[in-house]
Nucleic acid binder design. Sequence first.
DNA 1: GAATTTGCACTGACCGGTCAGTTTAAACGG
DNA 2: CCGTTTAAACTGACCGGTCAGTGCAAATTC
Lengths: 196, 196
Amino acid sequence: MSARTTATKQKLFDAALKLVGERGAASVTVDEIAAEAGVAKGTIYYNFASKDALVEALLHHGVEILAGRLRSAEAAGSSEDSLEALVDQMLGFWAEYPAFGQLLVSELWRTPGQWHGTLSLLRDDIVSIVRGQMKRLADAGRLPEGVEVGTASAALFGTLLVIALDWQVFQPERSRAEVRESVMLLVRGLGQARRS
Amino acid sequence: MSARTTATKQKLFDAALKLVGERGAASVTVDEIAAEAGVAKGTIYYNFASKDALVEALLHHGVEILAGRLRSAEAAGSSEDSLEALVDQMLGFWAEYPAFGQLLVSELWRTPGQWHGTLSLLRDDIVSIVRGQMKRLADAGRLPEGVEVGTASAALFGTLLVIALDWQVFQPERSRAEVRESVMLLVRGLGQARRS
DNA sequence: GAATTTGCACTGACCGGTCAGTTTAAACGG
DNA sequence: CCGTTTAAACTGACCGGTCAGTGCAAATTC
């Protein structure tokens, strides 16, 4: 794949992400994406088989970036520290690609949706990384009895997603550090809960 | 409004909710909604000004039901008990109207979306009820220092929404009681966190 | 109390616009 | 040269919205 092609696809990803995140995949037209990317419509069909194929590639691309960042947070010291690093990376990602969060949240739970299969796999990628960190926390005895690691991981991922969206849409004046702190307060609170 | 009209609108709400929740407002056609409701297309336009107006009415209708149930949970005894009742009511609502959760989640955070204004108001209705309960908890000293009531309320609402969706889509085998317990574990955990 | 009118609720064929995707011939660039 | 991009016209299916007309029950008239 030539450098030119790569650049074109990147422009298309950026444009599609912006528009699709804002208005939903179904109501964005291919002509709009082409215009936003500053590219001819034919170029889209030269690079992608269809509008759906473009969105699907976009989904993969985004998850790849997120997964990469989360994996980079795995190394850190104590189990709390690395979980905090993970939370921070995830919030940073949502802050940087807000439209991706909007796209994800509006398609992920659409039961028989066209992307449900793809998205389930992508979700698993992310959740399994979170689960790795969560397991370290559990092994360190910092998770209350009765909390299942799998459940907690899925919940943390979903919760971070909505908190990030809510932050951007309804409380944009809060800083990222502030938001991270309120999430960590919750995670630490959970870790410090009394065993019943 | 005649009984006949009421029945027709109810059929339209049911049909629209099912289809719009599954596939998104933009990609469901008016003809499909009419067919699902067993009604002619013209009937929709007799009862509603437009497709958008139908969806907006649907949104109001759903939030009204949810708000009613949440207010019914306000009475209960201790602050923990009534918060638990609220959590239970909300999970029950999402379980009963899963499509409403899908509709809400895919429109609520769409920044300049057509529903954003309406949805912000509806969100405020619900969050303010949650805030009332949360405030009781805070007044009883069961919330760690530094946690703002408004933030915690918005977070709880969003979290319950995604947990309910995740439950239905990815872990349907779990019982409602089980899910409620894991959420309450989290809320109680937070209430028991050490003051720093 | 039969005939007629009124008005609400509903019908479904139809219209005009929109949009994904195609085609083509020509230009560009490494 | 060959892979890529462009511009613009075109196709055809689809979809939101319209509208003239139907069904029907209650009210009105004689």
